[in-house]
Design a binder for these strands. Structure first.
Lengths: 196, 196
DNA sequence: CTGATCCCTTGATCTGGATCAAGGTCATTT
DNA sequence: AAATGACCTTGATCCAGATCAAGGGATCAG
């Protein structure tokens, strides 16, 4: 198995690649954390302390509503970031949970450390800007689909765009992410598998 | 009336304020554009050339679906930014429209100019990162509400959080933004105004 | 091995919100 | 001043998806 930090460095190669000094700083300013299945990286009421990069495994971020129903906001698997940015930057209590759906390994950067990286190495400002711009675009498209497409279309799109998530994540969670009940998603699946 | 660029400079004071050199560069690398009511800043099929800051007026960004129905993705009024970031950065045709709902004044930064600002003045990387992080957090919360709340709750929240938009934007557009039909929004309004 | 817990499915029924249709009020244009 | 069009409302009906209820197959801990 490769060093978690190497996976992270390789991830940055997709943007502006880090030089040795930046890699060293990033390594010093982050730490590896391992979570077992159903372990929490963040729970409601806590401040989100870690900007987390998933090296291995799969996590979800969700909210618990007044009726006790969970609403999945985001999944993150290998080479993806997960954090409650609002809570992280403001250092205020989060209303979200981040939970490992499988045994997972993440690289965590804490608030003070990220600020340090930003000011010492402007390339991080650049790279994190681009990373979040990409996430923003995806979220906008998801919002549009939520308003413009039927549950059936949204599910088909999800399976097409995220086949690995569709395979590794329980359908209950996909249903919640898409904004439908698990029962209804089950019916959709029954219908479309019959059709093929 | 104050100079549109001064409004933009004042906007940046809320983040890391610009120094004289940065202000000069920003002024040189941007231009003011005035739109009449129903004028377009972007139309489907075009590349989104401008990262636009609203000095005065109000615009909306929307998609037109296969059935010819519009879906509002975002509003922008004074001191807010509007752009199809995906199209802007990739310089690829957009599937969105940006239309002025009122006579409006915007400051536009084109792609090459923004890249120039980013590389010459790293503070822009920082400021635009923070700006989009804030937008991202808002959009996440909107996504959660879309999945967790009823149309009635979403409308009440919209009016509470965006009273000025609720006052200046036609209800048809608010309905589309919230993901309901104008007819249904009208019924919600009738019900809640009776209740008070 | 054995309960307990997930997770998925299927049936019956209900409802939030959509659709279709019509009419009314303003504001803008000619 | 008529006419067009944008915007809002209200009624009647319909449907996508929710809710409630039950059962069944994995998987996992003790």
């Amino acid at each position: 198995m490769s060093d978690p930090h190497d996976v992270l460095f390789a991830h940055f190669d997709r943007y502006l690649a880090l030089d040795d000094g930046e890699r060293k700083a990033l390594k010093e300013r982050s730490h590896v954390r391992r979570l077992k299945k159903r372990g929490f990286l963040l729970q409601e009421g806590e401040v989100c302390r870690s900007y987390a990069f998933v090296v291995e495994g799969c996590l979800r971020m969700y909210e618990l509503d007044a009726k006790g129903v969970e609403h999945n906001l985001q999944f993150a698997q290998e080479n993806e970031w997960i954090v409650d940015i609002g809570s992280f930057h403001a250092e205020k209590p989060s209303s979200l949970f981040i939970e490992a759906l499988e045994p997972s390994t993440v690289v965590c950067i804490e608030h003070a450390d990220l600020l340090h990286l930003y000011t010492e190495h402007p390339k991080f400002d650049r790279n994190f800007r681009v990373i979040i711009e990409d996430q923003f675009v995806e979220l906008q498209q998801r919002m549009l689909r939520r308003n413009a497409s039927s549950a059936e279309q949204r599910y088909a799109h999800f399976v097409e765009q995220h086949p690995s998530l569709a395979a590794r994540v329980p359908n209950v969670h996909i249903a919640s992410y898409l904004g439908v009940t698990p029962e209804f998603l089950s019916r959709l699946r029954a219908k479309t598998s019959k059709g093929s």
